[in-house]
Simulated assay, not measured.
Amino acid sequence: MPQWIGWFLLLNLTSASMAYLFLYPRRKLIGFHLGMNIAMAAGGGLALGTGVILINLFPLHFIEVTISTALLGIVAGGLFGALFDYQTVLTGYINGLMMGIMSPMVGAAASEGPMFILFIEVFILSCYLLLLTSAYRS
């Protein structure tokens, strides 16, 4: 597996942090429905990308990767959900947990090459872009 794939992990964390900093001042202007979608997309997307990358970088550490991606998804979903209300916190928390548990399995099943990881990264980054565009227009 190419070592440059590990840089995508930094890209995921940076894009999630920038999205959070962009949304924080606008949190009172965003409705609850969009807030729930933001929490689900942010927590689930970060957990999905992290799980696929880490299981491809450390293929023999399935338990550690699963626990770390589940915790990262829980934290990210909870933080993005906390921008809005308690129901959104719970939704982000559960979605981050589920994606964190499932993403190492998806990454292990699709470990044939970097093309799948590139597809996942394009998908996640486009979700963040759509998320920020929706929040800006609301």
Rank of each mutant, 00 (worst) to 15 (best):
G100E: 02
I67K: 05
L34E: 13
T66L: 10
G77F: 00
F84K: 09
G96L: 02
L72A: 15
Q87N: 15
E112D: 02
S68M: 13
G78F: 02
M115V: 09
F119A: 14
F32G: 08
T88E: 07
T66H: 05
N95A: 13
A70T: 04
G43P: 02
I38S: 03
M105E: 11
T66C: 09
S111K: 10
A76Q: 05
V65L: 08
S111V: 07
G49N: 06
L60M: 14
V52F: 03
F80N: 04
I53M: 14
A39V: 05
G78L: 02
V65H: 06
I101N: 06
S111T: 10
G107T: 01
A110Y: 07
L83E: 05
G35Y: 01
L57V: 05
G73V: 00
I63F: 15
V106S: 15
L48M: 11
S103C: 12
G92M: 00
E64N: 14
A41E: 06
N95E: 11
M102W: 00
G73L: 00
A110L: 07
G73I: 01
I101W: 04
T50A: 04
M98P: 15
L90V: 14
L71N: 07
L83T: 03
V89R: 09
I94H: 15
G73R: 00
L46W: 07
M98V: 15
L46A: 14
F62M: 07
V75H: 13
T91F: 03
N56C: 03
V52W: 00
V52P: 04
Q87V: 06
A108I: 08
M98E: 15
G51M: 06
I63M: 15
F84S: 07
M40K: 02
A47W: 00
I74S: 12
L118T: 12
L46D: 11
G96P: 07
A76F: 01
H33K: 14
I94Y: 10
F119C: 12
G96S: 07
M99Q: 12
S103G: 12
I94P: 14
L79A: 13
G77W: 00
A82N: 12
G51D: 06
V52G: 08
A76N: 10
N56V: 00
I53Y: 08
F119V: 10
F80S: 04
H33P: 09
I94R: 11
M36K: 05
V106Q: 12
G100F: 00
I38F: 01
G78Y: 02
V52T: 05
Y93M: 10
M105S: 11
S68F: 06
L54Y: 03
G49W: 01
V52N: 05
A109T: 07
S68D: 08
A110K: 07
L54F: 03
L118V: 10
I101F: 09
Y86E: 11
N56Q: 08
A42C: 13
S103Y: 03
